[in-house]
Design a protein around this nucleic acid. Structure first.
Lengths: 247, 247
DNA sequence: ATCGTTCCTTGACACAGATCAAAAAATGGA
DNA sequence: TCCATTTTTTGATCTGTGTCAAGGAACGAT
């Protein structure tokens, strides 16, 4: 579970996954400090990384793969509150208890930093603290954008928003040419999508089928999505352009 | 709009509203700096403070009153993404454009800090930066808690969650004795509540009537709420303990 | 290959909350 | 005080999504 996979980069431009918290403006001095406190952990698809309430003595950055952050009520209702894609950060400095359940939804590698030394580094290197604030503010914006999705969008629009988010992040990392057809793997099961969108898995499945029937997306297998025209997905997702369910 | 109401406090323990960003661990040196860059602004109930996209050359802390942070889609659907109560902070250092529309829902006074000097202060006084990170992380937690409310709770539970949040904050500030009946003013219209909860105002009104009919809350006028037993509100809000709508 | 398991799709129906409509109550100005 | 406006309540009806159920497809283990 805890394998050393020391990568060979010395500054952030060489860092393929741009550990945003620590590499954004990194210099050799910090990296030397970080070398001492970091280690890598890998998880396989479906495996829990940690449970809400667990003791947590590290913070981490996603190197590869996808994980989810979820919250669950006593009666089992579950809401995903964050999606962790490569370069995303997880863990709260200054808090030794996990607030959310983290689950790997694909094979996952995280770069972990021991919490106490990481906190010390934040306190002593202002630009890292600054970068962490930036990242947290970005996450807050994302959470608020998601509140609009959850509170006011229809099921069809919710699916469109999720596909758009995944496609955008995928394009950033994989350097797909912009303006062209987007093709990517869905890193989530229908159930995980439902938990993100505040829907049931049946509704997710039906809406994906409807988008496919309307020619707005196409699927190869269950997980490979292709979107010929992202703008059309976003603008027409709300319309029932040809009557919807019954051809 | 921009009146000087210089209050007479010199450090955070004397500060009745605990400007959290800047007073949490304040010392005289900072306050002297802050005196130069701060000013007060007052708004009356219903008045817009700023629109999403506006140029914004300050950050601010709420002194008294309540404001909302909202996001609106082109077709007019609106979602509140934050509630600003006294001591809450608004504005993003490093960004000169407002991301959300801010509206005063009661008479409101904010303590504003000019953005550029405030940013400089962050960069030069680590504990202020640290405090700002803490606050942002708290807001992120609040946003994520709200995602659970929006995505997975019923209308009745949503109302209960909102009342609980307002009551808790109110109790903190007004120092109500815990465990006793909570009485407070609703600082929001039914429509604003609906925008927070992802409901329509009719549903909000009906659910409040239902809670009243079930004896879980009581109203004096339309806005003064009293909750004899907060636990009961939170645990029974989901139940239709006696059949619900029809007596 | 075959079995068991998990994931996904589809159908029928129910229901929570939305929508449309009207009236009552509160609020603020003249 | 009275009128105009805004806010709130309530009723009737509609609809999008949930629930329950069944079957199919993909995947991993033996």
């Amino acid at each position: 579970m805890q394998q050393a996979v020391a990568p060979a980069f010395k500054n952030c431009t060489d860092c393929p996954i741009r550990h945003r918290a620590v590499c954004a403006k990194c210099d050799s001095e910090e990296l030397e400090l970080l070398e001492d406190i970091k280690y890598y952990r890998s998880f396989s698809a479906g495996q829990p990384v940690m449970w809400a309430g667990d003791h947590m003595d590290f913070v981490a950055s996603v190197v590869s793969g996808v994980a989810t952050l979820t919250q669950t009520m006593e009666d089992g209702r579950t809401q995903m509150v964050g999606l962790l894609l490569p370069s995303d950060f997880v863990g709260r400095p200054g808090r030794g208890v996990a607030a959310y359940t983290v689950t790997a939804t694909t094979d996952l590698t995280m770069c972990c930093f021991r919490r106490k030394p990481f906190e010390k580094m934040i306190d002593t290197t202002p630009h890292v603290a600054h970068r962490l604030l930036e990242m947290t503010l970005d996450e807050l914006d994302a959470a608020r954008e998601w509140m609009l999705v959850l509170g006011r969008k229809t099921a069809r629009e919710k699916i469109a928003s999720l596909l758009s988010i995944i496609a955008r992040r995928d394009a950033l990392l994989g350097s797909a040419p912009p303006g062209k057809e987007l093709v990517f793997d869905l890193p989530l099961t229908r159930e995980a999508m439902a938990d993100y969108l505040g829907l049931t898995l049946e509704t997710v499945s039906r809406q994906i089928s409807a988008l496919k029937r309307d020619g707005i997306i196409s699927l190869s297998g269950k997980r490979k999505i292709s979107i010929p025209d992202m703008d059309r997905l976003l603008t027409e997702a709300g319309d029932d352009s040809d009557g919807g369910y019954l051809t």
